[in-house]
């Protein structure tokens, strides 16, 4: 990542490490059941946890445990079957403004250039174009996509497309960023690189991030807090506060501390399995 001194952080969020553990997202007894033709399919069993301001929360669980459903519930794209989700103390009933989402596929619009794709939320929300254009260009520079602003998505590699998608999620300066296995489709080398970039981006912007993955190393490397989930219907088997320092070079993954947390995550996943079988 380029070392640029950018004023990407809004003043309200710039309080930095002095912040108190104020919950931004509160999940209270939330469960989700899908109604299908074969009857009701439970997807999430009642969940209870908070995500604090500026926290990097990683939800880790096996495929199909309802991780994506959880993100959609937080985003207000789906109503919970029971319980309630509060964001900034307001009950979520519909999609709300202060959120940016990144999915597993970049979902860039093929007829828009990179900058135009990044500007999409600004256009749709009717925010001042000129002001946010500068912000978009700064973000593009931060993720190392400068020079590619006028390229079309097909001219970018998978990793670059995903970086553009991250810029798009951040351009309107949301407090919360939801990421649904954003690097799941990328090879491990690119994934490592983007994990590193994401941590830097997070450190610089102080967003509250809720990140979903089924990769244990990725979960441990990125998180300040890990929520471990069982297979469908998902429930929380463990919540782990990371003891790793905020400064994390890639080789932190070979330290005792890292492996201990990874071990505990694996234990949590195993606990979920034995419960089901």
């Amino acid at each position: 990542m380029k070392q640029t001194n950018l004023k990407i952080v809004s003043d309200a969020q710039a309080s930095g490490s002095a912040r108190s553990a104020r919950p931004v997202i509160e999940i209270k007894g939330v469960s989700k059941t899908y109604k299908t033709q074969d009857g009701e399919v439970p997807s999430l069993r009642p969940l209870d946890f908070d995500i604090n301001e500026g926290e990097f929360l990683v939800v880790v669980g096996p495929s199909g445990c309802g991780k994506s459903t959880l993100l959609k519930l937080i985003a207000g794209l789906l109503p919970p079957s029971a319980g309630e989700i509060r964001v900034e103390n307001r009950v979520v009933t519909s999609p709300h403004r202060d959120v940016g989402i990144v999915f597993q596929s970049a979902l860039l619009l093929p007829w828009r250039r990179v900058l135009e794709n990044v500007m999409m939320p600004v256009e749709v929300k009717g925010l001042p174009i000129e002001e946010y254009r500068r912000r978009a260009l700064d973000l593009i520079k931060m993720v190392g996509l400068d020079g590619f602003e006028r390229k079309y998505p097909w001219q970018l590699s998978g990793g670059m497309q995903q970086r553009a998608a991250i810029c798009r999620a951040l351009v309107h300066d949301p407090k919360i960023v939801l990421m649904d296995e954003p690097f799941g489709a990328l090879d491990e080398i690119v994934r490592d690189h983007l994990n590193e970039q994401l941590l830097e981006l997070w450190a610089r912007t102080d967003k509250t991030i809720c990140f979903v993955t089924h990769s244990i190393p990725e979960a441990v490397y990125l998180s300040t807090k890990i929520v471990v989930m069982s297979p469908r219907p998902g429930r929380v088997t463990d919540v782990i506060e990371s003891t790793l320092p905020k400064e994390r070079p890639l080789d932190i993954r070979e330290t005792e501390e890292f492996l201990a947390i990874a071990h505990r995550v694996r234990e949590g996943l195993r606990a979920g399995h034995s419960y089901d079988e």
Binding site: S105, L107, L109, W111
Partner: peptide, 27 residues
């Protein structure tokens, strides 16, 4: 357009007209 793209548009609070002109028509 991908189902997730429609979800993405919903998180921008996009109305049907916006989804139509910015997403469906070009696609």
């Amino acid at each position: 357009p991908d189902f997730l793209l429609l979800d993405l548009m919903r998180t921008y609070n996009a109305g049907r007209a916006t989804v139509f002109w910015k997403l469906r028509v070009p696609a």
